[in-house]
């Protein structure tokens, strides 16, 4: 019987590869855009006008305060009601990118706040403009603090991408769900699905740990 199941599983191999591909593509797109938008939001949260900063803060709180599953449902079901047509893939990308951007915004804000006040004052005193201060003095130093949790956030992103299976996107998790309907061995099927995620996530976790160690070992003033 187990042979039969293995055979059936082997037949699902192309489907599994498609699922893994979907997971990777979703995560990569959300990673790139989420990082760009997240940095933008974080910088504006600190350096933008009061109104802008408050609006960003409220939005980030809204996203951090609700389950990602609910956010996906909201985007997938409500945007069409507003006249914006979108398929599950686009909805998934929007939801994941937004989630990622909001968490990265918080990471960037914490990084910027970790830069000693004297650094900003020194830049101020030499007449650097607001964006020059940010670009030349604050951000490069903030990066030391930002990098480890940023990599950690990418792991969260990949894991969160599994939730888009709820709106029918055929990612790795959805493939497991489909296969388990035909091959009634949940332990084996989701073990294999888990291995798929582990292979992608674990190296990133190790990287985050190494970065963290390097940062705490190099406590104080160091060059990048």
């Amino acid at each position: 019987m187990i042979w039969q199941q293995l055979e059936s599983l082997a037949g699902s191999y192309p489907l599994a590869m498609r699922g893994l591909g979907m997971t990777v593509v979703l995560s990569l797109i959300a990673l790139v855009f989420g990082t760009l938008i997240g940095f933008g939001l974080g910088i504006l949260r600190i350096g933008g006008s009061r109104v802008l900063s408050t609006v960003i803060g409220a939005w980030v709180d809204l996203i951090r305060g609700t389950p990602f599953l609910v956010q996906i449902f909201l985007i997938f079901f409500i945007l069409p009601e507003l006249g914006i047509k979108l398929d599950a893939f686009t909805a998934g990308i929007i939801a994941l990118t937004n989630l990622n951007a909001c968490f990265i915004c918080e990471i960037v804000v914490a990084g910027i706040q970790s830069v000693p006040k004297g650094q900003v004052e020194a830049a101020l005193a030499s007449g650097l403009s607001k964006w020059q201060r940010m670009r030349q003095v604050v951000l490069p130093q903030a990066m030391r603090v930002v990098l480890p949790p940023l990599v950690g956030q990418y792991v969260l992103l990949i894991k969160d991408s599994s939730v888009v299976s709820a709106i029918g996107l055929t990612d790795l998790t959805r493939v497991g769900w489909l296969v388990v309907q035909r091959v009634p061995n949940g332990l084996l099927v989701f073990f294999l699905v888990g291995v798929g995620y582990f292979v992608v996530c674990y190296p990133l976790i190790l990287l985050a740990r190494r970065l963290e160690k390097r940062m705490s070992a190099a406590h104080g003033e160091v060059q990048l």
């Binding site: 000693p116 004297g118 650094q119 004052e121 020194a122 830049a123 101020l124 005193a125 030499s126 007449g127 650097l128 403009s129 030349q136 003095v137 490069p140 130093q141 003033e221 160091v222 060059q223 990048l224």
Partner: peptide, 20 residues
């Protein structure tokens, strides 16, 4: 003020050199 600050040098107690 940014322009005015370029005419004024300021030396801090804690140096505040850019570590990077």
């Amino acid at each position: 003020m940014t322009l005015l600050r370029t005419e004024i040098g300021f030396v801090f107690q804690s140096f505040n050199l850019y570590p990077h």
